[in-house]
Design a protein around this nucleic acid. Structure first.
Length: 563
RNA sequence: GGGCGCGUCGCGCAGCCUGGAUAGCGCAACAGCCUUCUAAUCUGUGGGUCGAGGGUUCAAAUCCCCCCGGGCCCGCCA
């Protein structure tokens, strides 16, 4: 609304100019809220930009929304009316509460999000955090903009790794250990298999045979496969419930098994396939892509085939507006091929499928690898973080009541924020120091800031009626900065959605928290004597609290009243 | 060989899509502020050839080309 006003003011002087795209935000707040650079007009008007700015500034008159217009060199800087922005922003936050910053752009549109999708029978390592946290956050972001989101956990519950596990279990496994600590036992077996297989490659053949038996519905093989799957899934669900993440479907690869053959036949019927080295492929040379293999020479299907079947099924079921795959960037080529094949099969909706890739989590010295045993269990990270949080609590807030609960939420907040605060395309190096850092740009920092705000609201115990607040009293620079940051919330959510980047929300939240803390130190609320100032500030705290709470929830992090 | 993404203070990052005013933030270092709403905070100081080189432009960390470093992917694994 303020921006529109500025654009109008410029257009009034220069009808033909594209004020909207030229308008920018000055690098420093002291310079104003919006800025119009006059360089592009220089050629046309045959004058130097400074003079153009000078003349225009004289002609443009302030309005109720735009308080001041100032020329600095070749720029015309606009200052918005602080009282107006305080009033609109705070009133909206108080009124909309949990839906502050929300829009209805997604009304009636369904977005399917495939995320987390761990491999069954392998432990949930810290590396799995990436897809899980990013996907969950993207889902929340879309939901805040009114989209109907369907979260699908496409479990990796099919493939030769099960053959390997069965071989290992039969050779070295133990039922009791399996029941007691299934994931760890299976993990040990998996690692041992790969160690042994180095010496005895025939184990790999045995594994393939056992997998074949699963496919052929051999009783023993199926029984073990089901057992491994169930035990793993139970463990995974523990972690999801800890993180408060819900999926609409746990449909792993095997779920789509009945549809695989049909998908292959359909592709053949549509004439896009050919035989190459006895395998059935879709040649994608025309599109500068390597061929996509649909069926191996032994007749069995592959990852790509299964994804085709899954995509079709999902479209039939949800008629999605968009489908997002949150999968690491190593699979970029796979998804390019998948989407191309779907398109060649004649599916209009193929263009609404999107791969949202992310960088790998690695050790400083190299890649993580389940088969080499070089991973870190997610639960181990949580436990360690929790311990450390408890120490901090005992030092800083020993009388806190529900310490266990708070410690868990703060630990999770630290871990999730550590992941989400960086651009997803970057590789993340796993570093205990970084994960367990609770100061500076971290999860605990933003959670702490929220707790501060909540504490003020609790203690103030004030009924806030926007009608009765005198927004003119908010004149300090810290107050205005906080208000302006708060006003940018919807923009941040939209941007995060457009780029599928939770990091944009994380960065916004840091900015908001920083602005809040500066305000907190300079502007007393409860102890403020002036009744009007006091009330205005508390209403601002309430609005900021609202903003932080929502931003945290969009990242999948709990907002705590105390910590 | 082809392709994808990354390279910004000692370290970790933001900014790049949509080019503009002295390149921001956090950690670490140093110096300050706790009888006032939680000091997991805040204030200040020092620290940068934006990987290198070309090009486009009035203007390039940002766009284009080329090179370098390290990460990843390229038919029967997922």
């Amino acid at each position: 609304m303020f921006k529109q006003e500025v654009i109008k003011l410029i257009k009034n002087q220069l009808k033909s100019v594209d004020a909207e795209s030229l308008l920018e935000i000055p690098p420093k707040k002291e310079l104003g809220d919006y800025s119009f650079p006059c360089f592009s007009l220089a050629k046309e008007l045959k004058k130097n930009p400074n003079d153009i700015a000078k003349e225009l500034t004289k002609k443009i008159k302030p309005t109720p929304l735009i308080k001041q217009i100032q020329q600095v060199g070749p720029y015309i800087n606009f200052f918005i009316n602080p009282t107006k922005i305080a009033e609109t922003t705070i009133t909206e936050a108080l009124k909309k509460k949990g839906s502050y910053g929300a829009t209805n752009e997604g009304k009636g549109k369904t977005v399917v999000i495939d995320f987390s999708s761990p491999n069954i029978a392998k432990p949930f390592g810290i590396a799995h955090l990436r897809s899980t946290a990013i996907g969950n956050s993207i889902s929340k972001i879309y939901q805040h903009l009114g989209y109907n989101c369907i979260g699908i956990n496409h479990l990796g519950d099919w493939g030769t790794q099960f053959g390997k596990l069965i071989v290992a279990y039969k050779k070295w496994g133990d039922q009791k250990t399996l029941e007691k600590d299934p994931i760890r036992h299976l993990f040990n077996l998996y690692v041992k298999f790969h160690e042994e297989a180095k010496q005895k490659p025939e184990l790999e053949d045995e594994a393939r045979e056992w997998f074949k038996k699963i496919e052929l519905k051999d009783k023993e093989a199926q029984k073990l496969w089901k057992k491994f799957s169930e035990l793993s899934l139970k463990e995974f669900k523990k972690i999801y419930s800890l993180m408060n993440i819900k999926f609409d479907e746990y449909t792993g690869e095997s779920f789509y098994a009945p549809l695989w053959e049909e998908a292959v036949k359909e592709a053949e019927k549509k004439g896009i396939t050919e035989i190459s080295d006895e395998a059935l492929i879709v040649n994608l040379e025309k599109y500068s892509l390597p061929p996509c293999i649909l069926r191996k020479k032994d007749g069995s299907t592959l990852y790509a085939t299964r994804d085709i079947a899954a995509a079709k099924y999902r479209y039939q079921k949800y008629r999605f507006y968009k489908m997002i795959y949150v999968v690491d960037h190593r699979q970029s080529l796979h998804f390019q091929q998948l989407f191309k094949v779907l398109e060649l099969m004649g599916y209009e909706w193929a263009k609404n499928c999107e791969h949202v890739p992310f960088g790998l989590m690695r050790f400083p010295e190299g890649t993580m690898s389940t088969r080499k045993g070089k991973i870190i269990f997610f639960e181990e990270v949580i436990e360690k973080a929790k311990q450390l949080v408890k120490e901090v609590i005992n030092k800083k807030n020993p009388q806190l009541k529900n310490k266990e609960e708070v410690a868990e939420a703060v630990a999770l907040g630290a871990i999730i924020f550590w992941d989400l605060s960086n651009d997803r395309m970057r590789n993340i190096s796993f570093d205990w120091e970084k994960v367990l850092d609770f100061e500076g740009e971290t999860g605990p920092y933003v959670q702490y800031t929220y707790a501060r705000a909540d504490s003020i609201i609790r203690k103030a115990n004030e009924k806030l009626d926007p009608q009765k607040i005198n927004f003119e009293k908010l004149t300090r620079i810290e107050e205005l900065n906080l208000i302006k940051t708060l006003a940018g919330f919807t923009e941040a959510v939209k941007e995060a959605k457009n780029h599928n980047k939770p990091s944009i929300i994380a960065r916004y939240l840091l900015d908001l928290a920083q602005n809040f803390n500066e305000f907190y130190h300079k502007c007393p609320c409860i102890s403020e004597k002036d009744e009007e100032i006091r009330r205005a500030r508390i209403s601002l705290v309430e609005a900021a609290k609202q903003g932080m709470e929502i931003a945290l929830s969009l990242l999948g992090i709990k907002a705590l009243p105390e910590m």
